[in-house]
Design a protein around this nucleic acid. Sequence first.
RNA 1: GCCGGGAUGGCGGAACGGUAGACGCGACGGACUCAAAAUCCGUUGUCCGAAAGGGCGUGUGGGUUCGAAUCCCACUCCCGGUACCA
Length: 915
Amino acid sequence: MDYRPGEIEPKWQGRWEADGLYRSRVDWDKPKHYAVTMLPYPSGDLHIGHWFAMTPSDARARYMRMKGFNVLFPMGFDAFGLPAENAAVQRNIPPAKWTFDNIATMKKQMLTMGMMFDWEREAISCTPAYYRWTEWFFKRFYEAGLAYRREAVVNWSPSLQTVLANEQVIDGKDERTGQPVVQKMMEQWFFAMTKYADEYLDFSRVDWPDPIRIMQTNWIGRSEGANVVFTTDGGDELEVFTTRPDTLWGATFMVLAPEHPAVEALMTEDQRDEVEAYRRQTAGRTEVQRMEAEREKTGVFTGGYAINPVNRERIPVWIADYVLLTYGSGAIMAVPAHDQRDFEFARQFGLSIVPVIHPEGETLLIEPDMEESFVGPGKMVNSGPIDGVPANLEKGRKNPSVAAAIDWLESEGVGSEAINYRLRDWLISRQRFWGAPIPAIYVGSNGIEMVSDDDLPVLLPEDVEFTSGGGNALTRHEAFLNTTDSAGEPARRETDTMDTFMCSSWYQYRYLSPRYDQAPFDPEEAAYWLPVDTYTGGSEHAVLHLLYTRFFTKAMRDLGMFDDTAEVMRAHGRDPSGLFDEPLSLLRSQGQILGEEQEGDRIVADGQLDGAFLIASRVLVDSDAVAGDGSVVGEIMRRTENVLQVRTGDGMVTVEVPEGCPVEIPTIAGDNDVNQLRAHLEVQRMSKSRGNVVEPGALVAQYGADTVRTYLMFAYEWQKGGPWDSRGILGAQRFLEDVWKLATNDYTPGTAIDEADSLRAVHQTIEKVGRDFEVFKWNTAVAALMKLKNTLADTMAAGTVSAETWDASMETLLLLLAPIAPHITEELWHERGHSESIHLQSWPEADPEMAREDSVTMVVQVNGKVRDRIEVDAEIDETDAIELALASQRVQVYLDGGEPKKVIARPPNLVNVVV
RNA sequence: GCCGGGAUGGCGGAACGGUAGACGCGACGGACUCAAAAUCCGUUGUCCGAAAGGGCGUGUGGGUUCGAAUCCCACUCCCGGUACCA
């Protein structure tokens, strides 16, 4: 009988579903394990990256189940977001239809993976049953003062009259049309994320990877210092935050963010043109571009002055784009003598530099001899009341000079100790249609009301027209816009929708009871399953998503949303204390599968060329095309939906391929379309818009899901990922074929029975695979199983074990492989006469006695270089090991009759002789 | 720029500070076959050598150590994030 995955996989998937093998039910008599893998965005098709993320998570969930846990492993879709809206604009498909079609496709594809998802718990964030509660959370947060409105910067396209996502902006221009984009202030909704800033820094209740904890810690960016108030000539107060208030006496100028509201009053008439030109220039830059310190310092003098409150010095006020409005107060005091960035700025513009820290035991350099700012320890000078106080490198009050400065500022009433965070409040407003509506209405000229709970959810209208460049379609939908307030007066609905990160911040709670309509989740379920025990997902979510969901849980806790759950826990004798502080107890993240490198198609495009923009009337792929063959000739460097970036002989041209435009690809027969055009790819992230997606459907058809699963778990270091390689999968296929043959061929014991080696391999493998599953090292677990397979193949050929031992060994291999390749192991398990599912069996136990090695190869080094290898007893002691090593012929040669200088022994593995 | 991660044979990757290259892919040689595929057996870091054996080798340059892919310092390049992609 041959191994036919195409037959056995659908068969078992059907049986498991019919038997409800993966339904998870609350059972207080069993220990629980709640495993979650990050839910996908329904982009269209499942790609290999989804398999890479989900398969090991599934294998781990299955392993935990075999270890005796009652496991919940649900799945859902994070279904609101920009791509659905792009599809609506570009192809005139309603976002809901596009999204639900994609979900149907992807779910069908997921069913072929052999996952133990409990589909009864499926949650889809764009369904009213789900976003009703997303809106409900918004209301609760608003009522608790955690949601508020204020102005913030957006990417505004003046030509399209719409807000663009950062991703849609390339080099300060709209990526589709090449139209300029400016930074503009707009009223927006925020969540008070920063309220919990200090709590996010505490990771004592979670087991998360160090890099993620470090990234979050740096993102939060807590710094200790002081707020100091400067006063402008006009009498306005300008507050700055500084971590070095001790250097205030060396502040020789101030720098404001160009958008700072005080600039208007500060600038003098003769500086107006220059200031306004600089502000316009800044408006065209993103934050990332602004912070690139490599750039030459730029800035403009406002013409205005402010008084330094510590010494009454009148100092000039500048604007520069390296100061960001979103950090601190958007204004800094500049101390060029002791801050390198300020130093460079002062040098660039000829501003004065006054040192206030005298370096320990060195001469105080003053202008013009300073070559760089001085950031070391020393003694305060030129600093009035704090002269002579030592300054060290400690932060905050631990630094005596900082402490002295803060005390002085507070006693004089010109400043106060302060803690500043880099972390900003969470901007949740999106000026888009396809998101959960914000359940607010505007009453009269500036009143705000929340929609009553009984009227939730505020539903997204279905009869919506999408036009390119029309902004948020909700703003044009009269029936949606017009409503009445609680008093029955006409009112206008909020048209902003919520950031999709809102939806994904609480889905682990919705999974527990996706149809529950009394609350976001059923306390009876939550009391048993919470918190999430294992969370896996991409490392790209290390900061944003993972901080947002922590904020959500902490806010929910403080608003009493877990109170009912805690009560049920107590009724069952479970102590709820501390269980709602963090949503995700253990986190592990995988890397990404990147695309295989490929050249972009070289195309000839005809049409009306307008500058660097072309609306194509015909596109032809022709690798030999030369300039002059058409309007645009070159390699496709990037493709986003139907917009191509083409590199021609003299630059980049944007080519839009409209619906109905003929596309000819000679190597692909039949009618071609824009989606078949290949963009140039170096090894990089796979995504639909880049066109380098590996479709697992074809792999499943060719090799079977078990092979794809095994290969993905074997071929990469999971935490790292790597470029896709389509050849290696044959190794996984051969491995499963071999297992199939070993399990189905008849075993005949030989005459010479010697079981020790074979049993040792079995028990060492049990140890190794279990250890690797605990630490998420799938590739070495599969390697160990391959090795065991090889050993058992030798055993079968030699017939060195009894029939009983053979059967037990074979079944152990199947059990260890079951979480990785669930179908083939289930088939073989039943083939061997079992009637119960292999997935309900217990994980095998290793016998340390059988796993132990009797002898090992001891390495003998001379000066750290391997010179000999000696087979020794595993229990050898140090004296015997050294004696054996020194007796070695090879070592004798190096000793040359003399005595060794030193001998290091690490029995039984190594002896190093130093001569 | 800033934060985090990474770099090991032709490729993916193994390796408590202690035998570098487990396990695979690929390649090469052989068996089977009319032939090919599949399968099976063998070889495979590199250089010198008939062999025994030896030299060199974990991105680059230094350092610590009896001993460094692993720890430290300085760099280069690549990947992820950088707050409206999800």
